[in-house]
Amino acid sequence: MTTFFVNILALGTLFSSVFAITSKNPVISIIFVIATFVQAAGYLIFIGVNFIGISYIVIYVGAIAVLFLFVIMMINIKLTDILETGNQYTKNLPLALAIGSLFTYVIFTIIPFNLNNVPALSLISESLINLNSLILNSNLISKDFISIIVNAYYNLSLSDINITDFTQIETLGYSLYTYGAIFLIILSVILLLAMLATIIISRSNK
């Protein structure tokens, strides 16, 4: 059941990111970006990274997507200015093909493609193995097989069970405040500089 949801969320992430980069209207594109981030956060929560998944929804949907929407509503965009049609669009297509093929070549040279990495295919093979052992010795329809089905339906995920267990956040805070403290200070300086830069850039100079 968890594997099924993880597959659905991964597929939804890919499809909504494709829709986000190909849609004409920027507001629709922002909506699909929000869908991408929510589905990626759901993916993280389902595989067990709870705190980062929830903070993804808080930071991206609550802050960054609202910032994008605010900027789009504030400036007056004519849709004919930012659309590129026909000849203008296909001019970039050879560059995109070259960079995409180079990227996939480099990645799959470093990491060879393995069918065990794809969860849907490994799910099919596992169910085939289960079915095979079921047919071969038929007295296996007993406590084992029933317990497998019951566990698949009722043992939903780790995030449901561990909702009051704060060990992940505890270890995160421990590492963030001990050996990662200097990075945290540098990060706060970077955020302060970002705030100052925004104020200075958008100040109206009269």
Binding site: S17, I21, I72, I77, N92, G100
Partner: peptide, 26 residues
């Protein structure tokens, strides 16, 4: 694959600068 989609969105939309920032986020 998500990184590849982000790169392709950055290259294919050279005119829409909002979509380029969205591709960087992806």
């Amino acid at each position: 694959f998500l990184f590849l989609i982000g790169i392709l969105g950055f290259i294919l939309n050279r005119k829409n600068i909002i979509l380029m920032i969205i591709a960087i986020e992806i």
